[in-house]
Amino acid sequence: MKNAPFLRSYTLFYLLFLYGPILLLPIFAFNDSRVVAFPLQGFTTQWFAEMAADQNLRNAAKNSLIIALSVASISTILGIFAARASVRYRFPGKGPILGMVMLPLVLPEMIVAMALLVVLLSIGIPLSLFTVILGQVLICTPFAVAILTSAFQSLDRSLEEAALDLGETPLSTFRLIVLPLVMPGIMASFLICFTISFDEFIIANFLGSGQPILSVYIFGQFRFPAKVPSMLALGTVLVLFSIILLGFAEYMRRRGIAKAGGKDSGGFL
């Protein structure tokens, strides 16, 4: 590898730019002043206490957790069906169907949300946490399909054939051979869908009809300057939380590649 001092320092600056706002989070979360500005005023854990005591916040967090767990489960299951079918079989209409599944990746989210909202309102389905789940699954499924497709692709077909030759049924082959081998992919898909859903705002806001959901709650609180420091404390907690989750997802992904005997080509998606 050649040394490239200029490129290297540029990349480090770029990382600083990317991380800038996140590095400020803990600084102001522990800063002893309601006004979020320099110079710093001293150390306090008051904002974390305020955050922990906020009953509405706890409600919103609970709802977000319910939504994110449901969305991650449903998207991953739908993703398994689509990825397995697309890797394993050729069938008519494959292109259009997969195109439709992946469409939300190239459609502004607002359009997906509004189209769904118009239909729900027209047929009179009341908005609730359930409708938020319905909408977010649309957004998360493409990510699940992308991750799971590469998991199924790195699977060695001859292992399955061997199991079938040895007298296993297709179903037990899937359970005993395929499922354990793609398990890391399934875990990675679940964790990434969970993270996307937990952070998602547009669908939570427009299909949730004012239900307390974490992202919507945070959005609302930023309109009150006095609430900002405790939101930054919450932000610090959330950042730690997602770094742990993503580190775990990345670990699972790598283990999956190693298990299937492939080479790491890097990257999440």
């Binding site: 069906f81 079918a85 394993r88 069938f91 169907i97 599944v101 909408g135 699954v137």
Partner: peptide, 21 residues
Amino acid sequence: EARAGLKLISPTAIYVILLLA
């Protein structure tokens, strides 16, 4: 093969047709 593939993808396909298309 086509039947098996279509059957397998049908839950996902039905979901996106109803809620997106």
